[in-house]
Amino acid sequence: MLRHLARRLGQALLVVAGVVVLTFAVMRVVPGDPAVAFAGPKATPEQLAAARERFGLDDPLPAQLLAYVRDLVTGDWGISLRTRQPVRDDLALAFPASLELVGAALLLAIAVGIPLGVLAARYKTKFPDFGVRLGSMLAVSVPVFWLALALQTLFAGALGWFPVAGEYDARLDTTSPLTLWTNITAVDALITGNWPILTSTLHHLVLPALVVAAYPAGVIAQMTRAALIEEAGQDHARMGRALGFGETSVLTRFALRPALNPVLSLIALVFAYALVNGFLVEAVFNWPGLGRYAAESIRSLDTPAIAGVTLLVALVYVLVNLVVDLLQGLVDPRVRVR
């Protein structure tokens, strides 16, 4: 067991190293001259030289890479060309907002996807099954940015049921200012009992979370259906039927819990996908998360910021994968389902 742990940790570290090298390669080698990007196109040769000097661009590439790694490890993720703030500070503000959105979306996706998957499995090859398969297929095929625009136009614009954009009503910052603990607005509002901001945040969350939830909900419904149908063919489901339980009881009371195992590991994997999908949604709803930060950085060709976002998300991705992997290795998925 310890060997397995050490092995997986070693692999994860290797992947992180690779991720750093790749990010470095993409950001420093591909774009040609980063000095021009920093100093601007109208810079004098002297300014360019100063920029080169400052970023160590005249050093050989391996030396630059080493310096980059050293900076990263010591917590220096560079200075954003756009905000002129340390990238790390920008990320520390933007990431929690993304977590909030993706977390809400995943909760929604689980709450919708699993019951729909059960429904489809229960009425396999019948109309509800057809409906769920069709719906989940549409949910994974819809372009998120377009769905975001459509829902925003319809429910926020035309009907006015929900706010058009933002994380919460900015006026509340003066009437009931929020004390920050985790930087996740909804959580901070909840633990400090700031109800105006909490309700406003939840109200703002509905539409973007719905959009981000579409893909995970579709995948979860499909996976739940497939896993349940497989479980329903197992001996223990047959035993349930032989004991006189109806099909619905067999599925929900005996087959569902073992079937949830693959679904749960899937959720962890969908998390990273939802995070990046959320980028597009954040851009549409002006949600102050990583996505909006990335979009604005892209617009101003802010390479350190883009590298920071890339690196952060890749690290989260590696971490999530590692946790899922270890959980699956620690316990026999067939047996350990308490």
Partner: peptide, 24 residues
């Protein structure tokens, strides 16, 4: 049919553990 299953006519399957729901 469900009323007789289990209550009056019981089934015992070959592989004992596979016949019991793993999470129950």
């Amino acid at each position: 049919l469900r009323a007789i299953r289990g209550a009056r006519a019981a089934l015992v399957l070959q592989s004992p553990q596979a016949a019991l729901s793993p999470a129950t």
